[in-house]
């Protein structure tokens, strides 16, 4: 007798996404959907999509959704969660959305200890608008608006959101993972699951940054893009749990 060992999570809509081959968005969507299924929270989960490549995330999950304005997903999530604390609310944001235009909203949501979950896709570029420089773009990285490479003397160093947010005193769960290999994808799932579990327990603000590929705007094949994360990003963006509510922050 055959047994089903791999199937589409219930919380993931049965549609074709518009993501490019090798893009991490699809992987992280699946992980989020698996967590929703495993925790049995589909009927009370509400997502908040950003402006960025994942703007259409509301079509890809079988849950109610908001589409927020650029960078404001944490404010929208705050409004929804404060109005209906029984809902499980998650915001899904890119690095331009969260670390540039939405910097104020994420910092204050984190500092207020809003009890929702933020999934932060850091692919070091503005994917949707065609690969412009982001606040997370690496030193020397060539983008369409940093044609000579990111010059840290002109524009500063890439912003490390986990480090920044974990410096705030308010309790929270803050972790950085990566989607560049099967082993790291499994760890990403663990972190995202932990974040949702903490929200279900009404504990604290929960934030998972996922180092992600954008093969299209990096001008790389998917395998090459995964290698880039490992070789270029990991030394600057260390993985690990930066803060957890009981205080046992551990870097892996």
């Amino acid at each position: 007798m055959s047994k089903v060992v791999f199937k589409r999570p219930k919380a993931l809509a049965d549609v074709v996404t518009h993501y490019c081959p090798g893009c991490s968005h699809g992987i992280v969507h699946r992980i989020v959907a698996e967590c929703i299924d495993e925790l049995g929270i589909q009927e009370r989960t509400v997502g908040v999509a950003p402006v960025g490549c994942s703007v259409l995330a509301y079509n890809y999950f079988n849950v109610d959704f908001f589409e927020a304005s650029h960078g404001r997903a944490p404010a929208v999530a705050t409004g929804a969660k404060r109005a209906r604390p029984d809902l499980i609310v998650f915001a899904y944001q890119g690095d331009g959305d969260l670390a540039s235009i939405g910097m104020a909203e994420i910092v204050h949501a984190c500092n207020r200890g809003e009890k929702f979950t933020v999934i932060f896709i850091n692919n070091t570029v503005y994917g949707m608008t065609g690969g412009q420089m982001a606040p997370t773009t690496m030193p020397g990285q060539v983008t369409t608006t940093s044609p000579y490479g990111r010059d840290v003397n002109q524009i500063g160093w890439p912003i490390r959101m986990c480090e920044l947010l974990s410096s705030l005193k308010t309790d929270g769960f803050i972790a950085r993972t990566s989607a560049h290999s099967p082993a790291e994808i499994i760890k990403t799932k663990k972190a995202i699951k932990k974040a949702f579990e903490l929200q279900v327990a009404n504990r604290c603000f929960t934030f998972v940054e996922v180092l992600s590929t954008c093969p299209t705007n990096w001008g790389m094949m998917p395998i090459q893009a995964q290698k880039r994360i490992e070789e270029e990003l990991l030394p600057y963006y260390p993985l690990g749990v930066f803060k957890s509510p009981n205080g046992d922050a551990s870097k892996s």
């Binding site: 509400v46 908040v48 908001f66 927020a68 304005s69 404001r72 404010a75 929208v76 999530a77 705050t78 409004g79 929804a80 969660k81 404060r82 109005a83 209906r84 809902l87 104020a104 909203e105 910092v107 204050h108 207020r112």
Partner: peptide, 26 residues
């Protein structure tokens, strides 16, 4: 009931969007 001082009016309006979107009077 919930009173919340937002970090800015930009955020406040987007909080309105969230609260109105789940059906509450805001």
């Amino acid at each position: 009931g919930c009173y919340l001082q937002a970090e800015s009016e930009v955020a406040a309006a987007n909080m309105l969007y969230g609260a109105a979107g789940v059906g509450e009077r805001v």
